[in-house]
Amino acid sequence: MSETPAEPAPATLRAAVWLLFAEAVGMVGLTLYLAYELLTADAVDLTSALLLTLFAAFGAVALFLLGRTLGQGRAGARGPAIVLQLMLCAVGYYVIQGGTAWVGVLLIALGLAVCGLMLAPASTRALGVG
């Protein structure tokens, strides 16, 4: 008995998955930077610094796992991935308020782009949603 090969994911879903992986890599970089700062800073609120570093590490793992799960065609990962992208937009807003507008605009654009890719009709069909 031969199994029929699974239909390849559409370009929109593949792009969303790769962008989630890229975000995970960025979060790993942020985690390493925060860990370095935690270990080398003279005066630090140890509890806050440790929690922030752990939060960044958790974010990296979550983005990777959501990307992998979406890549496997599981629709249940789409909602949490969209929530993380909307959180990225909120971070972008506060980065703009903090004075680094170009970084904030890029973060917002990235979050909206990934949301758009996951909500595209081809991605929705491939995930069997709607």
Results as ranks from 00 to 15, higher is better:
residue 1 M to N: 09
residue 2 S to F: 06
residue 3 E to I: 08
residue 5 P to Q: 12
residue 6 A to M: 08
residue 8 P to G: 05
residue 10 P to H: 02
residue 11 A to V: 12
residue 13 L to W: 05
residue 13 L to A: 05
residue 15 A to E: 15
residue 15 A to M: 07
residue 21 F to T: 09
residue 23 E to I: 08
residue 25 V to M: 10
residue 31 T to S: 00
residue 31 T to F: 00
residue 32 L to M: 12
residue 33 Y to M: 12
residue 35 A to S: 13
residue 41 A to Q: 13
residue 44 V to R: 08
residue 45 D to H: 06
residue 45 D to L: 04
residue 46 L to N: 03
residue 48 S to Y: 10
residue 49 A to G: 09
residue 50 L to V: 08
residue 50 L to A: 10
residue 53 T to A: 13
residue 57 A to Y: 02
residue 59 G to D: 01
residue 60 A to Q: 06
residue 62 A to F: 02
residue 62 A to W: 04
residue 63 L to K: 11
residue 66 L to C: 11
residue 67 G to S: 04
residue 68 R to Y: 11
residue 69 T to W: 09
residue 70 L to I: 03
residue 70 L to Q: 05
residue 74 R to A: 08
residue 75 A to T: 04
residue 77 A to M: 04
residue 81 A to Y: 00
residue 82 I to S: 02
residue 82 I to G: 00
residue 83 V to F: 14
residue 83 V to R: 13
residue 85 Q to I: 00
residue 87 M to W: 09
residue 87 M to C: 10
residue 91 V to A: 14
residue 92 G to L: 01
residue 92 G to V: 03
residue 94 Y to L: 14
residue 96 I to H: 05
residue 97 Q to T: 08
residue 99 G to E: 02
residue 100 T to Q: 12
residue 100 T to W: 08
residue 101 A to G: 09
residue 103 V to I: 15
residue 105 V to F: 13
residue 106 L to A: 15
residue 107 L to Q: 14
residue 109 A to V: 06
residue 110 L to T: 15
residue 112 L to W: 07
residue 112 L to N: 02
residue 113 A to C: 13
residue 115 C to K: 01
residue 116 G to C: 05
residue 116 G to N: 07
residue 118 M to L: 15
residue 119 L to E: 12
residue 124 T to C: 03
residue 125 R to E: 14
residue 128 G to L: 03
residue 129 V to M: 09
